[in-house]
Computed example of a mutant assay.
Amino acid sequence: MVKRRKRNSFIILASALLLTGCVNSELEITKNDILEVARDDANATKKECSNISIQEDKKYYTVSFDTTTGSYDYKIGKDGIIQERNYKRSNSDEAKEVSTIAPVEEKKEETKTETKKEEKKESTSFDENQQAAIDAALANAGLGQEDVTDIGCTLDEATQQYTVTFTFQDIHNTAIVDVATFTVLSSIQS
């Protein structure tokens, strides 16, 4: 009987707190929450982020951090909604990509199955700008080109955007990438 009263008291207290939170329309998010919003948008873990900076203004936070693929700058409202997003790709990313190509070539010689997979992937060639758009879309998803299949990239000249498509673990992904900055504007999984 005493346990039941405690449980009922707890439920009443939790309901009261929930209602109080719903009534308070001025509820603001903490700096840690804002950083989590930015990291989630960038598909970056805590370990992948360095040089983290969070500045608080009256109506928004300015968040910036670096990852191995580039630098991210965000302007996030105190309601947790991203108002602006900027991504600058790092030059060290290109060097990293070059270093991962060499082991793949060694694997081609090791087994016939891996050679066939690599030849199939390389059968579609992309120009330099298409490859940059693909790299941006894959970095945004936290993947490498060796992780995905069925890669495609088309340019919509009217909107000046690339549409990058790829499959990862039987999930079809589509990303829209800006032609001028190679920034991922949106991504959809289906």
Score class of each variant (00 low, 15 high):
Gln169Tyr: 08
Glu119Cys: 13
Leu138Trp: 01
Gly80Thr: 15
Thr181Phe: 15
Leu27Met: 13
Lys46Gln: 15
Ala102Val: 11
Asp147Ala: 14
Ser99Gly: 15
Glu48Asp: 13
Asn24Cys: 13
Tyr60Ser: 08
Asp127Met: 09
Lys117Asp: 10
Thr67Gln: 04
Ile171His: 09
Glu106Met: 10
Lys96Gln: 14
Thr100Pro: 08
Glu119Gly: 04
Gln131Cys: 04
Val184Met: 10
Glu36Thr: 15
Ala14Trp: 00
Gln55Asp: 11
Leu27Phe: 07
Glu106Asp: 13
Lys78Asn: 03
Tyr87Arg: 01
Ser123Cys: 11
Val2Pro: 12
Asp170Ser: 08
Lys88Thr: 11
Glu110His: 13
Phe166Gly: 00
Val148Tyr: 03
Ser186Trp: 05
Asp150Arg: 07
Thr154Gly: 04
Val2Gln: 06
Glu97Ala: 08
Asp150Ser: 00
Ile101Tyr: 10
Thr154Arg: 02
Asp40Cys: 13
Asp135Gly: 01
Lys112Glu: 14
Asp93Trp: 14
Thr69Asp: 13
Lys88Pro: 03
Lys3Val: 14
Asp73Phe: 09
Ala102Trp: 11
Asn140Thr: 03
Tyr61Pro: 00
Asn8Leu: 09
Arg4Cys: 08
Ser123Tyr: 02
Leu143Ile: 05
Glu128Thr: 08
Thr67Val: 10
Asn86Leu: 12
Ile171Val: 06
Phe182Asp: 11
Lys3Gln: 12
Ile34Gly: 07
Asp147Phe: 02
Gln130Glu: 05
Val104Asp: 09
Val179Gly: 01
Arg4Ala: 05
Val63Trp: 00
Ser64Asn: 02
Gln145Trp: 02
